[in-house]
């Protein structure tokens, strides 16, 4: 099976069961949402896929390759790029050089990589700021930079961790259009964690819902938002 498969993964930090027996599939070229309230284990799930932690139990495979135990750079080499929820720009480097570092993963030649970095920077609307140091960017721009840098590595699967938080509604719509475009035109598979429901509803073909580290629902966005278990975890028992 190509695409990403997550089978029964668990992760415990000391006493805290952060992720428990979570399984889902991200089909090739798919656009899948991962939602849930704060502390539901979404980012931990990302970190388990991206190689930051190894799962205590379960298995993650991508395109038939087992990812368990691989380091983050090896996961990236397998074709998976991720963004960080708490952004991690290379602060002292220019916006262009930040993206260039990502491009150098896919392209050994520096000047060719720089050209590609320039194109990506332009597409994400950071063109005017390409020579600024990344530390001087606003938070929404830093989120865009995270996406640009990850795209530089030419990923087959893109893991997006709340890249639309803090964007204005029109900017959200632009980002949604952008992701749909790279998904459709470049065939990049996307798994996104997102709190901005406007984006999830517009983008995701299929949604997986986590709460307290466990999967509580999955399905199309329309169905999931009517699911009583989902409503309960977001709004509390009384509201249902």
């Amino acid at each position: 099976m190509s695409g990403l498969t997550v089978r029964g993964i668990s992760k415990r930090f000391r006493g805290l069961q952060a992720v428990k027996d979570v399984s889902f599939d991200v089909p090739e070229h798919g656009l899948i949402g991962l939602i849930g309230p704060n502390g539901a284990g979404k980012t931990t799930t990302f970190n388990l896929i991206a190689g930051v932690y190894a799962p205590d139990e379960g298995e993650v495979t991508f395109g038939g390759q087992r990812l368990n135990g691989l380091r983050p750079d090896q996961v990236c080499a397998a074709g998976i790029a991720r963004t960080f929820q708490i952004v991690r720009p290379f602060g002292e480097l220019s916006v262009l050089d930040n993206v260039l570092v990502g491009c150098l993963h896919a392209e050994a030649d520096v000047s060719a990589a720089r050209r590609r970095a320039g194109e990506i920077v332009d597409r994400l609307g950071l063109g005017a700021k390409r020579d600024q140091v990344a530390a001087s960017l606003t938070l929404p721009d830093r989120k865009r930079l995270e996406v640009a840098r990850a795209l530089g590595t030419k990923p087959k699967l893109l893991l997006l961790d709340e890249v639309m938080a803090g964007l204005r509604p029109t900017e959200v719509d632009q980002m949604v259009a952008f992701f749909r475009e790279i998904n459709r035109d470049l065939g990049v598979t996307i798994l996104l964690i997102e709190h901005v429901m406007r984006a999830v509803m517009a983008l995701a073909q299929y949604v997986v819902v986590l709460n307290h580290g466990e999967k509580i629902a999955e399905g199309t966005p329309e169905r999931v938002v009517r699911d009583p278990a989902v409503l309960e975890c977001y709004l509390g028992e009384e509201a249902v």
Binding site: A50, V52, R71, P72, D73, C76, A77, A81, R82, F84, R88, P89, F90, G91, E92, L93, V101, G102, H105, R149, A150, G152, T153
Partner: peptide, 12 residues
């Protein structure tokens, strides 16, 4: 600048 971010971009 950021080792973890560097590693996520495929740098050993």
């Amino acid at each position: 600048e950021d080792q973890e971010a560097a590693q996520a971009l495929g740098i050993d």
